Simulated assay, not measured.
Amino acid sequence: MTKEVDDMLKLARATGDDDPRAALAAARELRRTADRTEAAVVRRARVQGLAWAEIAEQLGVSRQAVHKKYGRR
């Protein structure tokens, strides 16, 4: 298991903390980590030749949405 996956699992568990402040902080960090991970995977998919439409389908969003979020600026 990679360190990143291990960290995400710890954060996911921490969202169940009885202290709502701690749970919210864990949820925030989990979202940030997931966003960074998604961006890295999208870059890797593009390098390997996947089309925006295929990436969008896998992410469950429109081609326009994924291109807007991750396309070159």
Rank of each mutant, 00 (worst) to 15 (best):
L24R: 11
V5Y: 12
A34R: 13
G16V: 04
D18A: 15
A25C: 06
E29G: 01
L9T: 05
A23L: 01
P20G: 09
K3S: 15
A12V: 00
T33E: 14
D35A: 08
R28M: 05
A23Q: 00
G16Q: 13
L24C: 03
E29I: 02
A26T: 05
D17A: 14
R36M: 06
M8N: 05
M8Q: 12
V5W: 08
T37K: 08
A14C: 07
D18L: 13
R28S: 08
R21M: 08
A25V: 02
A23R: 00
L30I: 10
R31P: 06
R36V: 11
R32I: 06
T37P: 00
D18M: 08
L30A: 13
L24H: 07
K10F: 06
V5P: 00
R13Y: 09
P20Q: 09
A26N: 04
R32V: 03
D6Q: 15
D35H: 06
A14D: 08
M8Y: 10
K10R: 13
R36K: 14
A14V: 00
L11R: 15
D7N: 11
E4L: 10
G16M: 09
E29V: 02
R36H: 11
A12S: 07
D6V: 14
L9P: 01
A23W: 00
D19Q: 05
L11M: 05
D17V: 04
K3W: 10
G16S: 12
A14Y: 04
A22E: 06
R21V: 07
R31A: 12
L9S: 09
D6T: 12
R28V: 11
A25K: 02
K10P: 07
A34N: 07
A25D: 09
E29F: 06
D7Y: 12
P20W: 10
L30C: 04
K3L: 14
R36L: 05
D17Y: 04
D17W: 04
A14S: 11
A22S: 10
D35F: 13
T37Y: 14
D19I: 07
L11S: 04
A14G: 06
